[in-house]
Amino acid sequence: ETKSLTLVLHRDSGSLGFNIIGGRPSVDNHDGSSSEGIFVSKIVDSGPAAKEGGLQIHDRIIEVNGRDLSRATHDQAVEAFKTAKEPIVVQVLRR
């Protein structure tokens, strides 16, 4: 079962304390579909994302501050987090 969660993150020394993997390839599949998503791959101990109620590894990131990342490329997702103003509201899907 997958549930949708909304989390609020604040940077600590400029970092949110997690890494992402995935992202849509720069070239779409011929039918326009994509199974890619942006997923949390690593969480830094005691970083902002590790706090209670924070992110978990394998969370799929859907949205950052209202910006849809469900079909974003990896670079677009990285840029969305880099430029996001605080508080950073992150919507994820968690299995």
Rank of each mutant, 00 (worst) to 15 (best):
Q91I: 04
E52W: 08
L69M: 11
T6V: 07
I20V: 06
Q91F: 01
I61S: 00
D12L: 09
I62V: 12
V27T: 14
Q91T: 15
P87E: 03
N65Q: 03
D45I: 05
R95Q: 15
V44A: 13
S34F: 11
I38R: 00
T2S: 12
G54A: 13
G22T: 11
V90L: 08
L93N: 08
H10C: 07
L55Y: 00
G17S: 04
D45M: 07
K3I: 15
L5Y: 10
D45R: 09
R60Y: 01
S34K: 13
L9R: 05
S26C: 08
T73A: 03
E63T: 15
L69R: 01
E36G: 09
D28N: 11
T2A: 06
S41E: 07
D31Y: 09
T2N: 15
I38W: 03
H30Q: 15
N19E: 15
L93D: 06
A49S: 11
S33C: 15
S13M: 15
R94W: 00
G47P: 05
I20Y: 05
D12W: 05
H10G: 07
D12T: 15
K3F: 15
G17E: 04
R11P: 05
G54T: 11
I62T: 06
K51L: 09
L7Q: 00
R94T: 00
K3S: 12
I21L: 07
F18P: 00
R24L: 11
R67K: 13
V40G: 00
V8K: 15
V27I: 14
S41T: 08
G14V: 05
F18H: 00
S41D: 15
K3T: 11
D68E: 04
G53E: 07
D45H: 08
A84S: 05
H58Y: 11
T73K: 05
K85P: 09
D68R: 03
S33V: 14
G22F: 13
G32P: 15
H58E: 06
V27E: 09
E52D: 12
G66L: 01
E63H: 07
I88E: 00
A49T: 08
A84Y: 00
A72P: 01
D75Q: 14
G32A: 10
H58Q: 10
K3E: 05
F39V: 05
I57H: 05
S35E: 14
G53M: 08
V89T: 13
K85V: 11
L7K: 04
E1H: 14
V44C: 13
E52R: 10
S35R: 09
K3W: 05
A72L: 04
T6N: 04
S46D: 14
G22Q: 15
G66A: 03
S35D: 08
K42D: 15
Q91S: 10
G37V: 01
N19V: 05
I21E: 11
D68F: 00
L9W: 05
P87K: 03
T6M: 09
E86V: 05
